[in-house]
């Protein structure tokens, strides 16, 4: 991006698109377990996520471009998660929230938990914690914005 002398800015169309895209991420409410409550807290009064342009939590995969997988993904749930991910339009991003989603967490000795959601869908940002604090999720969203602006998410 360059600032011209005459007070106007020259940039490429793609830069504008990425800038707009990164500041209007519409998350898809994929709340599964404990972390979903923290995701709701991120949305609620104290840590208002709409400061980052993500206030519109859509309930339909077709209208959203970020999937925050919050909570343990079980084997019974994984095929449904995959189907919902397939229904989302491009470009789409995934945040894995919580250790259960990253590698099974405290449940990884068991028989019915998927050892990490990255076996099911590609993940852009991992947010560790059990559950991550809302601040951590906000940081994750900012990282994703950075990533979109640098066009690494493609």
């Amino acid at each position: 991006m360059k600032t011209g002398d005459a007070g106007f800015i020259t940039t490429t169309l793609e830069n504008v698109l990425e800038w707009g895209r990164s500041n209007s991420i519409w998350p898809f409410t994929f709340g599964l377990a404990c972390c979903a409550i923290e995701m709701m807290a991120t949305q609620a009064s104290r840590l208002d996520i709409s400061r980052f342009g993500s206030e519109v939590f859509r309930n339909s995969p077709r209208q959203s471009d970020l999937m925050i997988v919050s909570g343990t993904v079980t084997k019974k749930m994984a095929p449904r998660l995959k189907r919902l991910y397939d229904e989302m339009p491009y470009p789409k991003y995934v945040i894995a929230m919580g250790v259960c989603v990253i590698q099974g967490g405290p449940y990884n000795q068991g028989y019915s938990v998927v050892m990490g959601v990255d076996r099911v869908v590609p993940v852009d940002v991992y947010v560790p914690g059990c559950p991550p604090t809302p601040e951590a999720l906000t940081h994750g969203i900012m990282l994703l914005q950075d990533k979109i602006r640098k066009r690494e998410g493609k």
Partner: peptide, 20 residues
């Protein structure tokens, strides 16, 4: 490993390539 068919019924197998 569990997978789902088109009607939403679950399918279970021991094959890691089929399902999660």
């Amino acid at each position: 490993y569990v997978n789902m068919d088109d009607e939403g019924n679950d399918r279970v197998s021991f094959d890691p390539g089929d399902g999660w």
